[in-house]
Design a protein around this nucleic acid. Sequence first.
DNA 1: TCAAAAGTGTTAGCCATACACCCATGC
DNA 2: GCATGGGTGTATGGCTAACACTTTTGA
Lengths: 260, 260
Amino acid sequence: MKKGIAHTTEEAIQPVATEAYLPGLSVDNVIFGFHADQLKVLLLECRNRKDWMLPGGYIRKDESVDDAAKRVLQDRSGLKNVYLQQFSVFGETRRTKESVMRSAMKSLDITFKDGDWFNQRYVTIGYYALVEFEKVKPTPDTFSVSCAWFDLNALPTMIFDHKEIVEQALVALRQHLHYKPIGYSLLPSTFTMKSLQAIYETILQRKLDRSNFNRKMLSLGILEKKEKLFTGAAHKAPYQYSFNKKEYFRLLKEGFGMPF
Amino acid sequence: MKKGIAHTTEEAIQPVATEAYLPGLSVDNVIFGFHADQLKVLLLECRNRKDWMLPGGYIRKDESVDDAAKRVLQDRSGLKNVYLQQFSVFGETRRTKESVMRSAMKSLDITFKDGDWFNQRYVTIGYYALVEFEKVKPTPDTFSVSCAWFDLNALPTMIFDHKEIVEQALVALRQHLHYKPIGYSLLPSTFTMKSLQAIYETILQRKLDRSNFNRKMLSLGILEKKEKLFTGAAHKAPYQYSFNKKEYFRLLKEGFGMPF
DNA sequence: TCAAAAGTGTTAGCCATACACCCATGC
DNA sequence: GCATGGGTGTATGGCTAACACTTTTGA
């Protein structure tokens, strides 16, 4: 608020240089990861409060909204070049609450005045990201004391309308599943059909037939079968697959029809 | 800019009372109508310029973003309670151009300074609406001299990225067609199956089989057959239908799968 | 009686679903 | 060899797609 403009990546939600950002606008990312057959969301634990929030940030005056979302994603997870999709705007008048802002400011040595940067109405643009769980380095920001994964079925209490944003993101993701390939940035470069199926099953919240899932996926022509076999368990070794990047992104752009 | 705040509906894009609006944010509506077997878009002819623009406006500090879009829709078309769907945010840094703003201001007796209200970067939230063509009363705003329908295949030159916004809206509409019913606010309260089919055909840009379309639509259970027959032409009279509003909106919320 | 458009019926083929059966592996 | 999980095959039912046939109406 008093300091000059710091142009590092990690200036995201810093209470400095508010003149560098668009007023009243923010982005919030719902970052999905996949671990132990469960979908997880990356959340931040609020400083000085008992609740959690989505990784979010403001939009610099010289960057696009998409770029702001990318920057936030990279700052909190260490990752870039992952699937990041804008899905909805949250623009209710009273979605942010002064009381929450106030307590969040307390620890940060910020004078809280009416009409202040943090005390204005915020419209936020929701994005969801699909990331490879293992590769993420959870990193809290200035407003938070920790950054951790949560199971979708066991979300903590969250500030503002952030829980609703998570739910909407899941709805959007489920929709997209019907006409877009999923898995590229969620899985390691090589994976088994079983783990891919597990992703679909957790997102859709229901079991799919193993045989039919196999056939369908292969028919899309986005998978490359590695003849190399995995080993170590007391059963037949599964094939390893990787995505044919070119075909994958062609389908991502063009869309298709999934039976479920 | 000098006058006080006028709280009529028709203050939308007025250059007065800029303090009443959220800075740097706007909504733009792609209003689709259906006429003569063609999809039309409602556009505004810019004052002092040779190009056209989408009906848009700013967001009042005491209204939600959705409400702002509704207000703009009502001001330009006279309609409310129609299908209005947010579909994307347009947030590139250079999407609005100073030169365009400048010429638009010229006729309005507005001093144009750097850092001025109209000379800032704008992020806009795109909505599309489906309206009953016949019911619309096209009404220009302060920045425009006329308001008229355009065929989607014959759009005029448009300011900023507005043509791209129209195209994106059409893409979104086409997507939604696959899992949501369409037609309610596009058609009169009573209509024929042929006109409903025509809507689907123009949105999808391809012919559909009459017989199969019939069967599919009826199987959704959102249509009520009026035994009253239409008359006047040299052929068999078609049935009239109307939507079962309750079922229609249930499906709109839940979604379903369309074969095409 | 003919043309045009609407209503209805029918068939073939595809595809999702369900399930069965074989293969590989470690204990 | 047996349990476990992976790979592959197949039958059934349902639905789409295509098209044929009938009905209604005004000219």
